[in-house]
Design a protein around this nucleic acid. Structure first.
Lengths: 232, 232
DNA sequence: TAACGGTTTAACCGTGTGGTTAATATGTCC
DNA sequence: GGACATATTAACCACACGGTTAAACCGTTA
């Protein structure tokens, strides 16, 4: 996008962007207030328009920042070495870790999903085409490969991809409700560790023809990286 | 709530409520416009305040209407006859059918989840305590029972309950995004049938110690009620 | 130091929105 | 038919919000 945007984290533009991501994550684009973003960034509201033009453009920039590099990361894992089973489990783990390590990521995406009624979101078609589409296709391809090789059960790849991401995403989307129901914060490290183990176990149990082998693979992956990356 | 509210579907109050549910489902409480609701109901905006007082109260009424009777229905299924496996699968199917048959249900709940940042939603604590809490507890109890009896694998009940609802809910929450990615409407009857079969198969594969038996049970449940209830 | 470009601010503006009010319609009982 | 309660409306209001404007600030260079 710009030439060297990722250094200098204390210039007003970056500060605004970070404040915007937090605000959009909490309230969505419609609910976010530009005043609040500017105030949180310790900056005049006009400066926001000076750098980003409109609220919608700021939102697009926030989305781009959040999604930057993520597609490549996921596609890399899915196309990497190892059996289809190993690659899918690696992807599931990476997806979980990404959401666990950034409080805003899952919620921004959640708001985007909610906003996306037929043709109402300006950013949706772009995001679907450049991000979700290729990702979904690649997950389906890996699933199909595993089914062909006999490593996976006879599954519908598209449906299975949805179940996997759904199980993964829902935990974070529903986190505030969950906190109310269970009296524990789902983002607490202990809770995250529990969920991380569960999601890998569930994915393995769902996918593999030889369930015991799949679960062993999931456990190995878990032990290979037992700790979550810290919040950036 | 009131004495005889559910008859006479063409009085202004009911019309307003239905219009409100549709509007809240599309845009959430923050995004919904009272003007638009009144206009959709073919009624003056002041009448909305005459009947419901404030937008927030209207939203609460909409939530109550959507959730009315649902908890009893689900709890009934979970406490009904049959093994834990059968009851859980019946519940999963009922949950799916509910979301499939009402375009608004899942999306209203989705918006409510998004809105529920720490202590910001007035309706969340009430909903969590009277609705989600008991339901979650009952699902966990059924899961624990199945684990104890050996029908299910050794699972963490709470985590498993989350995976099940997540896989179920996500499909409908993400429907607009999905439509963009796959070029087919996920709410099309054919797509719903596919998803319905998949969700039951996935639940069975995830839960049962004897996977083949579980899948047979899921298939039997599917054939017992092959068609979805129509949209009300 | 004066001119200049990029940066930042205080003050302002138009509009959309939730909510109010006062007046009018509608029905019902005597 | 008149009194009275319930419905329903047109017109209005206050204000929050996204966006604008013109001026001030600041570092650099001549």
């Amino acid at each position: 996008m710009s030439s060297l945007p990722h250094l200098r984290l204390d210039d007003p533009r970056s500060t605004l962007l970070r404040a915007a991501i937090a605000e959009f994550a909490e309230r969505g684009e419609a609910g976010a207030r530009t005043d609040a973003i500017a105030r949180a960034a310790g900056v005049n509201k006009a400066l926001l328009h000076y750098y980003f033009g409109t609220k919608q453009a700021l939102y697009a920039a926030a989305l781009d920042t959040i999604l930057a590099g993520l597609k490549e990361h996921y596609l890399g894992l899915l196309a990497g070495p190892g059996s289809a089973g190993l690659r899918i489990l690696r992807y599931v783990r990476a997806n979980f870790d990404r959401m666990a390590s950034s409080r805003d990521y899952a919620r921004v995406l959640g708001h985007e999903m909610m906003r996306a009624r037929s043709g109402a979101s300006a950013s949706l078609p772009h995001m679907a085409q450049t991000y979700f589409g290729p990702l979904h296709a690649q997950v389906c391809a890996a699933l199909a490969e595993g089914i062909r090789s006999g490593e996976f059960r006879a599954l519908d790849p598209a449906q299975t991809a949805l179940t996997l991401t759904g199980a993964n995403v829902f935990y974070f989307i529903a986190a505030p409700v969950l906190a109310e129901v269970t009296d524990r914060d789902p983002r607490e490290p202990d809770m995250l560790r529990l969920r991380r183990a569960a999601i890998l176990d569930h994915a393995a149990a769902l996918l593999f023809e030889d369930r015991a082998a799949g679960q062993a693979m999931a456990r190995a992956l878990l032990e290979a990286s037992p700790d979550l990356p810290p919040e950036p």
